[in-house]
Design a protein around this nucleic acid. Structure first.
Lengths: 194, 194, 194, 194
DNA sequence: GATGAATGAGCATTCATTCAT
DNA sequence: CATGAATGAATGCTCATTCAT
C-alpha cells in the first residue's frame, strides 16, 4: 500500500539515470543500487547482468515509441500534418527518452565490430518501419509523388536526428519556425504537381 | 631509411584500429602497443593517456575534413551540384574515417553528463560550419529561397547521417538513385520560383 | 498418506546429490532447495548451515557402515573369508556411498589446517576400529601370525582405498581375480618359494 | 644479485602454503599475493588463474617424484629392498609435498562430476607407472611369484596411502617396525605356517 | 630513447543467511 | 510451518599508469 514503486522499477530508473550520466562502461552496479536504494543482490535478482538492464530499458522505450506514434500520427493524416506531427512527436519522445537512445548507441560501439554484427545489438527500429509504411502507402495513393521511400524517410528521420544533435551539441534548440521550414523544404520536394 | 614510420604514427594507427574494433573502453593499452610493436613505456612517451590518443586522432580527422570539403565542394558551385557533391563527399569521408567518428561519439557519452559538458569533448564541427556558411551566402545571393539556414543544414546533414546510419544498421547502402532523390526533395523545397 | 517423505529427508537427499555433483564449496543452498522442492527458509528450519547438512549426512553414513560390517563380516569368520568379504563389503559400501565419503574428505581440506584440527571434522572411523579389533583378536588366538596390527590394517584398508582410487581414476575396476590376488598377497605374500 | 627468488617463485610458494592451509576454494588471491609480497597484478602476470597456479605446483611435484624414485629405488634392487625403500621414499616425498597432493585431490572434487571427467584433472600418476613397471619386470624374471601386477601395486600404494592417512588422521606416525611388518606382510603374507 | 615488470584501485558477480509475512 | 525477497560482504580478475633499468 505505502510503497508502490517496486524495487525493479527503482533499479530501472536508477540504471537509466546512471547509464546516461556516465555511459554504459563507466556506470557501476554499486552506484546504481546506491541510487535505487537497494542491495547489490537485489540487482541480480531482477537482472542477470548490466547488459540485461539496458535491454530491459530498451524494450520499454520501443514499446512507448510504437504506442505514441500510433496515437499522435495515425496513417489517416495528410502528409503535411503527418510530417509536422511526426517531427514534433519524434523530437518529444527522443527528448524525453534521449537517455536510452544514447546509451544504446554508445553501448553498441563498445560491444565491438559493430559494422559487422550490429544486428545482434539492434532489433528492428519501430519508428523507421512506421514511417516507411506511411510513405509507401501515400506514394501508392498518389498523395506523395513517386520518390524512393527510403529517400524521404532519410530526409525526415535525418532532420529529426540532426535537430536532436543540434539541441544536444549546440544547445540552440530548433524553433517552431525552423521546424516548419524543414517540413516546407521536404514537402515542396514531394508534393505532386497538381 | 629503413623504418620511415615513426613509433608515434604506428601508435596512432594501432589506436584507431583497436578503438574502432573494441570501442574506447574495451580497448587496452596492452593491445595497442602490441599492434604498434612497441613497449608500453613508449606509449606514454608520446601520449599522456588513452584519452590523449583519441584527441590526437580527432585532430587529424578534422583537418582532413576541412581540406576535402574545400577541394570537392568549393563555394562557387551551384546549389544542385554543391548539394550532390556535398552528400557524396561527406558520405565518403565519414565512411573512410567512420572509425574516428564512432569512437568520438561513443567516448563522448561514456565520458559523462554530455548534455552539460559536451563542449569539453567536442570542438566546433567543421562540416557544419562549412555548409552553414555556404547556405547563408546562397540565400543572400538569392540562389536559394529564404528559409532558416539551420533548417536546410538539418535536412542536408540529417540525410547524410541517416544514410550512414542505414548503411551501418540495415546494410543496404543508399543507391545513386536514392541519393539523387534526396537532393531532389531538398532542392525542390528551396529552389526559388523563377 | 500422500507425501510420506519429510522435507528434511528431501533436503538430505538433495544435499547429498548436489554436494557430490558440485563439491561442497560450489554447491549452493539455492540449488539444494530447488531440488528439494522447498523454500530457502525451510532449509534453515532443519539445518543451521551448509556445514550442518554435511554433518547430518555423515552421521547417516557411519551408522550404515557399522551395520553392514557387523552383518557381512562377523568376527567368527576365518581370516581368509573375513578379508575377502571385508574388501568386497568395504568396496561396495564406499561405492554405494562414495558421495558422502568424497564430500567429507574434500570438505575437510577446504575447512582448514587439517593436520592440526582434523579431529573437529572427523570422528572415529568405524571401519578402522572394526578391522583393528578383529586383527588383534586373531593375532591373540594365533590364527594370524604376530605382526603389528596397524601394519595389517594398513595393507587391508590401503588396498581398498587404492582400488577405489583406481576405479575412480583409471576407470578400470579391479576384477575378482585381482581382488583374490590382493588377499593372497596379504595372506601369503609374494616371495616365491625357493 | 641481492634478491635471488623471483616473484614467480614467491607466488608458487605462497600459493602452496595458502592452498594447503585453507583449501583451494577458500584460498584467496588477496592472501596469496599478501604472503608473496607482491601486487595482485603480478599474480596475473605469471599465472592466468587460480587453477593455473595449482597446475604449476603439480607439475613441479610430478617432476620431483619421478626424479626421486629413479634415484632412491633403481630397478636393479631386489623386491625386499625395493619395497622397503619405495615405501620410505614415497612416504617421505608425500610428507614433504603432502600439501600439493591434498590440494589436487580436493580440487578435483570441487571441480565436479569427477567420476566422469577425472582425466581432465589428473594426468598419468608417475609413481604408479614406475612401480607397475618394476613389478611386471620382476614377475617376468621370476623374482616375484605370478600375481596380478595391479594387486601387488594396490597393496604397496594402498599401504603407503593408508599410512599417510593415519599419520594425518590419527597423528600416530607408523614406526619403522610397523613399516617393516607391512613389507613382511606383502612379501611373505600373514598366514601362520601350520 | 625505449622498455616491460610491478602495481593496486576498481568492478562485476555470487551466495550464505536473515526475517517479515 | 513455510516462504522467498532482500541483503552486502567477499572474491576473482582487469588494466591504466608508473618507474627503474
Amino acid at each position: 500500500m505505502e510503497e508502490k514503486v517496486s524495487k525493479r522499477d527503482m533499479l530501472l530508473e536508477a540504471g537509466l539515470a546512471i547509464f546516461y550520466e556516465k555511459g554504459f562502461e563507466k556506470a557501476t552496479i554499486d552506484e546504481i543500487v546506491l541510487r535505487a536504494e537497494c542491495g547489490k543482490g537485489t540487482f541480480y535478482k531482477y537482472f542477470t547482468s548490466k547488459d540485461d538492464l539496458v535491454d530491459a530499458l530498451d524494450d520499454k522505450f520501443k514499446a512507448k515509441m510504437k504506442d505514441k506514434l500510433k496515437k499522435n500520427c495515425p496513417y489517416k493524416l495528410s502528409p503535411e500534418v503527418f510530417f509536422t506531427k511526426l517531427i514534433k512527436t519524434l523530437r518529444k519522445i527522443f527528448k524525453e527518452n534521449h537517455k536510452i537512445g544514447i546509451i544504446k548507441f554508445s553501448r553498441a560501439h563498445q560491444a565491438n565490430k559493430l559494422l559487422e554484427q550490429s544486428d545482434q545489438n539492434w532489433g528492428p527500429i519501430p519508428e523507421i518501419e512506421y514511417i516507411t509504411n506511411y510513405v509507401i502507402e501515400k506514394i501508392n495513393s498518389g498523395e506523395i509523388s513517386k520518390v524512393e521511400p527510403r529517400s524521404l524517410v532519410a530526409c525526415l528521420m535525418g532532420s529529426v536526428h540532426h535537430m536532436l544533435f543540434s539541441d544536444f551539441k549546440e544547445k540552440k534548440p530548433f524553433t517552431d519556425k525552423e521546424i516548419k521550414d524543414v517540413v516546407k523544404v521536404i514537402l515542396s520536394g514531394v508534393k505532386p504537381i497538381c
